[in-house]
């Protein structure tokens, strides 16, 4: 049987209509959601709080062998909503925003809080499938008031644009979601890219960028962290072997107290104790010997650079400021090495 390439399920009827048949408590329609969103904005403005919205966009069932029928779809939607309602808090408000799109309003939740909620929802939806078929391609995006917008409509618009951005992202194009961390690294460093959000470059003794460039990048990021120490975020610095002689160790030490979680990852780091700012992660994996990486994410920016060692002391590097790819790399890294899943 041929794989269904298009989106047959959305041709005949709308998920929006089907959602009305759901009996799930506290799962609302778009009219209620819009009204509640306006109230939440007013409340947050009044008390100077932040709140976030998450959009769960059901893109297609491209991986399914057969197109799910109306009955299967309703069952699927029920399962999605049921799983969703189990992980959101009682104060969160979820509902159907429009066709294919579910929205969750998270009161009193900042950027990182919403990312954590996305992770929880993703995990909960992993087991949801359509009659045993692979799960649907679901895209998540968030936006936070007042960081991203001044009103509910604008906030939903920002999250919507992020969904569209993610659909076009290299992550989706290369189908990286289903790959393991090292497969993903191999995919990213083996290609040649030149887009605004992601590109490749080489470093080496006779090239425009020397091998020390990655050290400069790490130092610049650590300076950025030291400059705004109150900003929360996460930074992974992957090296062959963790040692106190690494150039960035001094930068970490002198950065002062920061809200950033910094992890220095290497094959061996037993001789290097954790510092006030960083935690050493020794993985004992030989694959780390040929690759340097930096994954950085805070509420304003995301950046990842991966450099694979090549012949003649040169490196092929891939770097990106696409928050979707950076977040995906961090998540995969944490999962594949059974590290605590955090952002």
């Amino acid at each position: 049987m041929e794989t269904v390439k298009e989106e047959p399920v959305f041709k005949d009827f709308s998920l929006m209509d089907e959602s009305r048949k759901l009996l799930e408590n506290h799962f609302y329609d778009s009219a209620f959601i819009n009204e509640y969103g306006r109230i939440e904005t007013a409340r947050s403005e009044r008390y100077g709080l932040s709140y976030s919205v998450i959009i769960i966009h059901i893109e297609s069932f491209g991986g399914a062998k057969t197109a799910p029928g109306k009955k299967e779809l309703l069952k699927f939607l029920k399962a999605v909503v049921s799983a969703l309602m189990k992980v959101v808090r009682t104060c969160d408000v979820a509902g159907m925003l429009e066709d294919k799109r579910i929205i969750v309003i998270l009161p009193h939740t900042d950027y990182f809080g919403s990312l954590i909620t996305i992770k929880k929802i993703q995990k909960a939806l992993e087991s949801v499938s359509t009659a045993g078929e692979p799960r649907a391609e679901i895209i998540f995006a968030q936006a936070t008031y007042p960081k991203d917008a001044n009103g509910f409509g604008e906030l939903v618009g920002t999250a919507g644009r992020r969904v569209a951005g993610r659909l076009k992202s290299l992550w989706v194009q290369l189908g990286l979601e289903g790959k393991l961390f090292w497969e993903t690294v191999a995919s990213l460093t083996s290609g040649t890219y030149g887009a605004e959000a992601y590109s490749t470059f080489d470093t080496g003794p006779d090239l425009d960028l020397k091998n020390s460039f990655i050290q400069s990048v790490n130092s610049a990021i650590l300076m950025e962290i030291a400059r705004t120490p109150e900003k929360r975020g996460i930074l992974y610095l992957g090296v062959k072997k963790v040692s106190n002689d690494l150039p960035f160790m001094k930068d970490i030490e002198t950065a002062g107290r920061t809200a950033m979680k910094i992890f220095v990852v290497g094959t061996d780091g037993s001789s290097v104790p954790d510092t006030k700012n960083s935690t050493t992660v020794a993985l004992g994996d030989h694959r780390l010997e040929g690759v340097y990486f930096t994954f950085f994410m805070n509420e304003d920016a995301a950046y990842a650079v991966i450099c694979r060692e090549n012949w003649g002391d040169t490196h092929n590097c891939f770097h990106t400021s696409d928050e979707f790819i950076v977040e995906g790399l961090i998540t995969k890294f944490q999962r594949d090495y059974s590290l605590q899943e955090q952002l």
């Binding site: 030149g194 605004e196 590109s199 470059f201 425009d208 990021i221 950085f296 304003d300 400021s321 696409d322």
Partner: peptide, 14 residues
């Protein structure tokens, strides 16, 4: 100013 630095410049342009 070498090519392909757009992601880095974006990140450090706050």
């Amino acid at each position: 100013t070498v090519g392909g630095m757009s992601p880095l410049i974006k990140t450090l342009s706050g």
